[in-house]
């Protein structure tokens, strides 16, 4: 964990804070967090992208505000304060999505409001933003948010391609394609997630074995 100080972070520290969430500590594929939205809204690439963007917004904003007030917040009420801040940004994103697209709003349904209880967000508030400078907290939120969004897109893309034969609503295989509807159903979410976790774990293990072989 990075040291808590108010000085401007060095470029390498900033990069690390950003890349950590994006890759090394990817919230879905490495930490296996936020499974409820990951499985529930990834039945199409568009829904996955919208949920990803909404989560990035909430993560970056809540990390920023929590980092700003970190020295004022007493530890006894910190969780209540963080939840209050997170819920505020979730309510804001709820209004914004409704203003941008009613279709996406209807598709995401209650899962927008449920971003409040997405453990990635409270997790980053408690583990990072409450102990680090604003700049680093923003980068951490951006990295984690992007990592989450990419993971959702990986799931949503595969599920939409196999389950409907389309990507972002554009037909890929023509009218004769018989879609594998199972992938649009909840069970398809588990299968796709399992597939991606398998790839990630295999890749990590392979890297580890190669590093050991080099030694």
């Amino acid at each position: 964990m990075a040291h808590a100080h108010g000085n401007a972070p060095s470029p390498s520290e900033s990069m690390e804070a950003f890349l950590n969430g994006l890759w090394k500590q990817n919230p879905v594929f490495v930490q296996v967090l936020g499974m409820c939205p990951t499985l529930a809204v990834t039945n199409s690439a568009r829904n996955a992208a919208a949920m990803g963007l909404a989560t990035i917004f909430v993560l970056v904003c809540s990390n920023t505000l929590i980092s700003l007030v970190r020295k004022l917040v007493q530890k006894q009420v910190r969780i209540a304060t963080y939840i209050l801040i997170i819920a505020t940004f979730v309510t804001m994103v709820d209004y914004i999505i409704k203003a941008v697209s009613v279709d996406v709003y209807k598709a995401l349904g209650p899962f927008i409001a449920l971003i409040v209880v997405n453990c990635i967000i409270l997790g980053r508030a408690e583990a990072f933003a409450s102990k680090n400078s604003v700049g680093k907290s923003i980068l951490d939120g951006l990295g984690m948010g992007l990592g989450f969004a990419i993971a959702l897109f990986c799931l949503g893309g595969v599920r939409e391609i196999l389950g409907a034969g389309t990507l972002f609503g554009v037909s890929l295989f023509g009218p004769n394609f018989q879609p594998w509807v199972l992938f649009l159903l909840p069970s398809g979410g588990f299968f796709t997630l399992a597939g991606w976790l398998l790839i990630f774990t295999w890749w990590k293990e392979r890297k580890k074995r190669m590093a050991e072989a080099q030694q």
């Binding site: 917040v73 209540a80 304060t81 209050l84 505020t88 309510t91 804001m92 209004y95």
Partner: peptide, 18 residues
């Protein structure tokens, strides 16, 4: 006092977005 201040700021943010 702390929670009240945070709630006030949050409330203002929500109302302005609304």
């Amino acid at each position: 006092q702390l929670m009240g201040t945070v709630s006030l700021v949050c409330g203002l943010l929500i109302v302005s977005t609304h």
